[in-house]
Every structure is written in structure tokens, then in C-alpha cells.
């Protein structure tokens, strides 16, 4: 059984590496398309981390919604939006690079240390349930019902807004 533990451990670090690699790709790549695919890789890695947190349900939802739907919509937007390659490949000017580096690192370290010092760390709570679909559903609809409904309202608003925007565009073209 020990072997399986090693395999599991290795896979965990694999997912962590995947997340960071995807994130790095998303930030650093020159082409917008590569950046979005980096985002997809990072989200897939996060899905793996959810699995290690003991929630296969969340893992599948992450893949279904973020990798399978959100990323695809973003990619479609990028493809239709047409980013000129010259713009993507243009080098940014680096006049004040040392100054920027010093400022950013000082600010980051300062904020980070302040955050660590001020946070009141509590011990991690125990796992509260078996994270099965039944458990997740009951929690969503009993304990967090208000949040759940509010999110639904926000989504509904977004859909209505999208329909209104799309309708206007179509009428303009026909007239």
C-alpha cells in the first residue's frame, strides 16, 4: 500500500506543478491564445487539487464548467476578436526596470509580512462531511440557501443583459 501513497504524493505535486505552469503560461506568453490555454491548464490543475481535498464532485464541476465551458468561451472571444500578431510581439520598453523591481518586491514583501503578522491563524477544521453529492446538495440548499439563490439571481441578470445586448446589435444591422 506504501507504493500507492508515493504515487498519490507524486501525483499531488504533479497537479501543483501543472497549476503553476499553466498560470505562468497564462501570464508570460505573447500570444493571447496560448495565454488562455495556459489558463485552461491551470484550471485543470486546480481540479486535481480539489480531488486531493476530497471532493470528486467539485473536481468534475471544475472540469465541466471552467475547462469545458468558460475557457472555450474565452477562446472563442479571442478568436473572433482578432489580436494582431505585431501587437502581441511588440517588446515593451524597459526603461525603469530596476526601479520597478525594487518597488514591487518591497511592496509585496511588506504587505505579505504585514498580512502574516496580523492574521490570527487557527487550526484547520476537521472534514465536516463525506463530500458526496448528497452532502454538497443538502448544504447548498439548507445552510447556504441565501447565497445560492443570490448567485442564481446574478446569473439570471447576466443572461438577461446578454440577451439585451445581442438584440440591439441585430436590430441595428437589419435597419
Amino acid at each position: 500500500m506504501i507504493v500507492f501513497e508515493y504515487v498519490a504524493e507524486a501525483l499531488f505535486y504533479g497537479f501543483v506543478a501543472l497549476t503553476f505552469m499553466g498560470g505562468f503560461m497564462a501570464i508570460r506568453s505573447k500570444m493571447l491564445m496560448h495565454a488562455v490555454l495556459g489558463l485552461a491548464v491551470a484550471l485543470f490543475g486546480v481540479a486535481g487539487l480539489y480531488f486531493y481535498l476530497g471532493s470528486p464532485f467539485l473536481t468534475m464541476m471544475q472540469i465541466l464548467i471552467y475547462v469545458g465551458a468558460v475557457c472555450i468561451i474565452i477562446v472563442l472571444g479571442v478568436m473572433i476578436g482578432n489580436t494582431p500578431d505585431q501587437l502581441a510581439a511588440k517588446k515593451q520598453e524597459r526603461k525603469n526596470l530596476p526601479l520597478a523591481l525594487v518597488t514591487c518586491s518591497v511592496a509585496f514583501i511588506g504587505l505579505f509580512v504585514a498580512m502574516i503578522l496580523r492574521t490570527h491563524f487557527t487550526a484547520a477544521s476537521e472534514r465536516v462531511g463525506d463530500m458526496s453529492i448528497r452532502f454538497v446538495g443538502e448544504n447548498l440548499l439548507y445552510q447556504y440557501c441565501l447565497a445560492f439563490e443570490l448567485i442564481s439571481v446574478i446569473l439570471l441578470t447576466a443572461i438577461i443583459g446578454a440577451i439585451i445586448l445581442a438584440r440591439d446589435g441585430r436590430e441595428e444591422k437589419t435597419s
Binding site: 468534475m60 472540469i63 475547462v67 477562446v75 478568436m79
Partner: peptide, 25 residues
């Protein structure tokens, strides 16, 4: 036999779209 069997199928079926998209682009 997973208790989320249906979701596994739907989730991994959705990756196919990404592949077509990447291939086409």
C-alpha cells in the same frame, strides 16, 4: 462505480470541444 459517474462522462466529453477548437485555430 462512482457516485458521480454521469458527471465524469459529461466533464470529459466537454474536453473534446477544446481539442477541436485548438486544432482548428
Amino acid at each position: 462505480d462512482l457516485d458521480i459517474g454521469m458527471l465524469v462522462i459529461l466533464a470529459f466529453a466537454s474536453i473534446n470541444v477544446l481539442a477541436i477548437l485548438i486544432g482548428g485555430w
